[in-house]
């Protein structure tokens, strides 16, 4: 099926883009948001590969809890990453 192949290509391209952005940004809020988008797309990729239980675990732990814990950590420290 050509449509499924194209869809998987687009998801994997978005995964690579957001994974690069999450290490490139200096604003740590933007990094956390980019990592959240990465986790959403990884969950969609598991879903396309027909593993819905792994997709539930990835959505709950990765997208929900991890981003919230990152935000709590950023609230306790600095928002901007300082240049060495």
């Amino acid at each position: 099926m050509i449509a499924e192949e194209v869809m998987q290509f687009l998801v994997l391209a978005s995964l690579i883009i957001t994974a690069y952005l999450s290490i490139k940004f200096k604003d740590l809020i933007a990094c956390a948001i980019s990592l959240g988008i990465f986790s959403f797309l990884l969950s969609l990729e598991y879903y396309i590969l027909q593993a819905p239980d792994v997709a539930i675990a990835e959505a709950g732990i990765g997208a929900g809890l991890t981003t919230a814990i990152f935000i709590l950590a950023i609230r306790g420290t600095e928002r901007r990453e300082v240049e060495e």
């Binding site: 969950s43 539930i56 709950g60 997208a63 981003t67 709590l72």
Partner: peptide
């Protein structure tokens, strides 16, 4: 389940 769980990140940010 995904729609129920995934708004938590948006809410915290």
């Amino acid at each position: 389940v995904y729609a129920l769980l995934s708004f938590v990140a948006t809410l915290y940010i």
